[in-house]
Amino acid sequence: MSCSTTDCLLELYDEQHELEDYQSGVPRWCTGCGDNAILAAVQRLCRDEGLRPEKTVFVSGIGCSSRFPHYMKTYGFHGIHGRALPIAEGIKMVRPDLAVFVNTGDGDCCSIGAAHWIHAVRYNMNLTVFLHDNQIYGLTKKQASPTSPIGTKSNTTPRGSYLDALNPLSVTLGVANASFVAQAVDWIPESLFEIVKAAYHHRGLSFVRILQRCPEWLSKSFDPWMQDTDRIQLLHHENALRLSAGLSKTYRNQREHDPLDMNRAREIASSEDVIPVGILYQNREIPRYEETRQTGVLRTIETVRQGFEAELDKYTV
């Protein structure tokens, strides 16, 4: 008896949306940019899940990827550099009924926003976070980012970058309360969509790192993996994603991986030769911060006023 007649009546005239209902403007991204694939997958998710535009928010920081909210005909917040996550947390805290998505880039999340990133993972609020990782600062025309591979020549590292790249997957898996960590690549749209969908359905902070091509500033970076399909390792499990026939035909390198196995997830996250694609870790039992903080008290004007007065009374002389 999951749905009573009345519940069904209430949903009878729910609006059906088309992909176009979520499209807004023509993306200013370069032709060939992987952000386009992410946008298409997310718009498809919104349509398939029947997300109501007025109940959906996309929050971003600064960078190419952070133009994302402009192209979604939903609510959006184009924030400041590195601060997408705290803004999204604030929104979720006061409006838990909204679907909140975060689009952030490798510079935005892993450099200036790194502190917020760590704590957002620990808070495990019900947010869907997409890390658009093109391994370069694109909007400001090619500077090395924390995820640029060692030796990347850029305007800030003309002799090649000196440090090993930061691995966003390993970092996230190392934070307490991590509940959903996945990796996708923009050039396999089917698995990108499936992972985006699983992330949306996960209750808690779902962190999806999407490896994304930058045709303008780092055009050859992913060629070795794109040209050799065996260097893409598809993760599958009965409790995570299952592979379609078409996908398993093209990508032969497959690995069964239980998403509850943290140790194995960390091992997979540090693969260098192959790019693992799929859900590395998922634990549905970890509590959501906004739920643990819920008091169940209805916020009427009176309760808010009483609360204020009680606080102020403490300082009455």
Binding site: T31, G32, C33, G34, N36, A37, L39, A40, D186, W187, I188, P189, E190, P215, G246, T250
Partner: peptide, 11 residues
């Protein structure tokens, strides 16, 4: 089904 929506062809 493998198209990554990069706009190259439509351009």
């Amino acid at each position: 089904s493998r198209c990554s929506t990069c706009n190259e062809c439509t351009q």
